[in-house]
């Protein structure tokens, strides 16, 4: 028996909105530790890694490890039926081929449930080694989304370069070039507005705008985003989900041929 209750169903809806651009379907691995998902986009350039801890749920029970393959478009349809303030309870029997989502309104005056068919998906998991990153940038997630959106107008790639002076985002294309430089700023009153850089050595890497733009769909999940970079290693873009876990995106760099 699997049962997970989340008072803020909107958090799960935000997670779905953040990954549906990249993934059509995905397997949710449920265990006593929580719910995990790891899946690559169809071109194997980026990877989504979701970790929702069991103790972040308002109720969590998983008697037997369970992998639930879901079509994310269908899952999106189910969550479209929920109210913004609803509580969601996910339930599945052991070896079940369906999962049930029950939505309860805040006042408990409306309860709806939707049963969705599960899928058998070929799971491809990648082993991601622990990496000593050359630089770790933490910045407001809204600012990151804005910069990626703005620079995407100039070219298909964005160069992210980080030095002790700050971080620079650059793009160039037919119409010209764009550069955005951010210096470190410590705002002790509003931590979420700070830009912080933990630098071991300067690094500059090039990434496809299309994927960076998709990652920023996770902006509503977190005030801050963490970018971890290292030469010859994919970029890690991490959004902390308060009290529940994190959503990470991995993106292979572009390299000179």
């Amino acid at each position: 028996m699997f049962e997970a209750r989340l008072v803020n169903s909107s958090t799960f809806r935000k997670v779905l909105d953040a990954i549906k651009d990249l993934l059509n379907e995905a397997s949710f691995d449920c265990s006593e530790n929580g719910i995990q998902l790891q899946a690559m986009d169809s071109s194997h350039v980026s990877l989504v890694s979701l970790n929702l801890k069991s103790d972040g749920f308002d109720k969590f029970r998983c008697d037997r490890n369970l992998t639930m393959g879901m079509n994310l478009t269908s899952l999106g349809k189910v969550f479209k039926c929920s109210g913004a303030d609803d509580t969601v309870t996910m339930k599945a029997q052991d070896y079940a081929d369906t999962v049930t989502f029950m939505f309860e309104s805040k006042k408990q005056d409306k309860i709806s449930d939707y049963e969705m068919k599960l899928m058998n998906l070929d799971q491809e998991h990648l082993g991601i080694p622990d990496t000593e990153f050359s630089c770790i940038i933490k910045m407001p997630s809204i600012e990151f989304a804005r910069i990626i959106r703005d620079l995407s107008q100039f070219g298909e790639s964005i160069v992210i370069s980080c030095t002790k002076e700050g971080v620079k985002f650059s793009a160039q294309g037919d119409i010209g070039t764009g550069n955005v430089k951010l210096a470190q700023t410590h705002n002790f009153d509003k931590e979420e507005e700070s830009v912080t850089i933990d630098l071991q050595e300067p690094v500059a890497l090039t990434f496809a705008c299309q994927y960076l733009n998709s990652f920023t769909k996770a902006t509503p999940l977190s005030n801050q985003v963490k970018l971890s970079m290292c030469e010859n290693v994919p970029l890690v873009v991490e959004y902390q989900i308060p009290e529940l876990g994190h959503l990470r995106f991995y993106l292979a760099p572009k390299i000179e041929e």
């Binding site: 194997h44 990877l47 292979a252 390299i255």
Partner: peptide
């Protein structure tokens, strides 16, 4: 021209 790397170039399949 930039060549797009794939994740398998960096990570192993489990």
């Amino acid at each position: 021209e930039n060549y797009q790397a794939r994740l398998e170039q960096y990570y192993t399949r489990l």
